[in-house]
């Protein structure tokens, strides 16, 4: 498909024979994702002083995460045991119990708390 489009509007300034080296062997092969690139990079024997992409990731947070209401964003002292949503006051609880499952699941997923283990 891309070949087709290219052949139609190939700009004049481009070399006619260029092929991406990583594509030339096998057309079907997708590009390496950043994850793959990083893992290849990490596996190599680098000189002592070298810093690579994955070594500058931010450290994990050492502060306890504050709890905020999923619905309003207000500080949330309570958690609903059924839906596991956090809420700030009884009005919010009133709306919370009326929420359909997909919405509650959406809130949990947004907070990254949708896994069964966590």
């Amino acid at each position: 498909m891309t070949e087709f489009i290219k052949s139609e509007i190939r700009p004049v300034f481009k070399a006619t024979t260029f092929q991406h080296t990583s594509k030339s062997n096998n057309k079907k092969r997708a590009w390496k994702s950043l994850k793959q690139i990083i893992s290849t990079e990490r596996s190599l024997q680098w000189p002592e002083n070298y810093v690579h992409y994955s070594s500058i990731n931010a450290p994990p947070s050492f502060k306890p995460a504050e709890k905020f209401s999923d619905l309003s964003g207000l500080p949330a002292p309570y958690t609903d045991p059924q839906t596991r949503l956090r809420f700030a006051n009884k009005e919010e609880y009133g709306t919370l119990i009326g929420l359909p499952m997909d919405i509650t699941a959406g809130y949990l997923a947004l907070r990254g708390a949708s896994s069964i283990v966590g």
């Binding site: 994990p60 947070s61 050492f62 502060k63 995460a65």
Partner: peptide, 16 residues
């Protein structure tokens, strides 16, 4: 400042 609000374990800007 609070990447944990979307489930990221990383520290926020000020902490970093």
């Amino acid at each position: 400042f609070k990447p944990y609000m979307m489930g990221s374990p990383e520290a926020g800007l000020i902490e970093v």
